[in-house]
Computed example of a mutant assay.
Amino acid sequence: MIAFKDLAPSIHRQRLVVEGYPTFVITDEHIKEYLQKLSVVTDMITLIEPVTHISDLYGWAGWIHWETSGAHFYSWERPVQFFSVDVYTCKQFDPEAVVEFTREYFRTTEIVAKEF
């Protein structure tokens, strides 16, 4: 594997992946509401309302554009109910607040997170 080198140390970048098992089937409206509320939790300025799309093979996807980057959301119904959120920003945010908000919003049975 190629070693990672920070090519822009003067630019703050923060990444967080959150994945879990929701206790309900995630819909288009859930994704839009979640991403809007995530903007508040992370104190980000929203540039456009959340956009969603469904794939017959892979399920729902959503995205929100923030002034300081954005977040992607993916959910599956099969082979298991599951979601994955990728948050990437150039502004600092509290990852624990994001995980707790996500846990509560989706009433998860299990949740994991990794910060980069």
Score class of each variant (00 low, 15 high):
I2Y: 06
A3Q: 14
F4D: 06
K5P: 01
D6C: 09
D6Q: 05
A8D: 11
P9G: 12
I11Q: 09
I11H: 07
I11F: 10
H12Y: 14
R13S: 05
Q14W: 07
Q14M: 14
R15M: 13
G20S: 02
G20D: 03
G20V: 07
Y21G: 00
Y21C: 06
P22T: 13
P22F: 08
T23C: 15
T23L: 14
T23D: 15
F24N: 10
F24T: 03
V25P: 00
D28G: 05
D28M: 08
D28Q: 09
D28K: 11
D28R: 02
E29C: 07
E29G: 01
I31D: 03
K32V: 13
K32E: 09
E33M: 10
L38Y: 01
L38F: 04
S39N: 15
V41Q: 02
V41A: 08
V41G: 12
D43Q: 15
M44K: 10
T46I: 15
L47R: 13
L47H: 11
L47P: 02
I48G: 05
I48A: 10
I48C: 05
E49D: 15
E49N: 11
P50E: 12
P50R: 04
V51W: 02
V51H: 11
H53R: 02
H53V: 06
I54A: 07
S55I: 04
S55E: 10
D56I: 11
L57M: 13
L57K: 12
L57F: 06
Y58M: 11
Y58Q: 10
G59A: 15
G62P: 03
W63D: 06
H65S: 06
H65V: 09
W66Q: 05
E67R: 12
T68S: 10
S69R: 04
S69V: 09
S69P: 02
A71L: 12
A71V: 13
H72T: 13
H72I: 11
H72V: 14
F73C: 02
R78W: 11
P79D: 10
P79E: 05
S84E: 08
S84V: 12
D86W: 00
D86L: 11
D86I: 10
D86P: 01
V87T: 08
Y88I: 14
T89E: 08
T89C: 09
T89V: 06
K91E: 13
P95K: 01
E96N: 11
A97P: 08
A97C: 09
A97Y: 09
V98G: 01
V99M: 04
V99A: 08
E100T: 13
E100A: 13
E100H: 05
F101A: 08
F101R: 03
T102L: 11
R103G: 00
R103T: 09
E104Y: 05
E104V: 13
Y105F: 14
F106G: 01
R107K: 11
R107L: 02
T108C: 14
T109F: 08
I111N: 03
A113M: 00
K114D: 03
E115G: 12
E115H: 09
F116R: 14
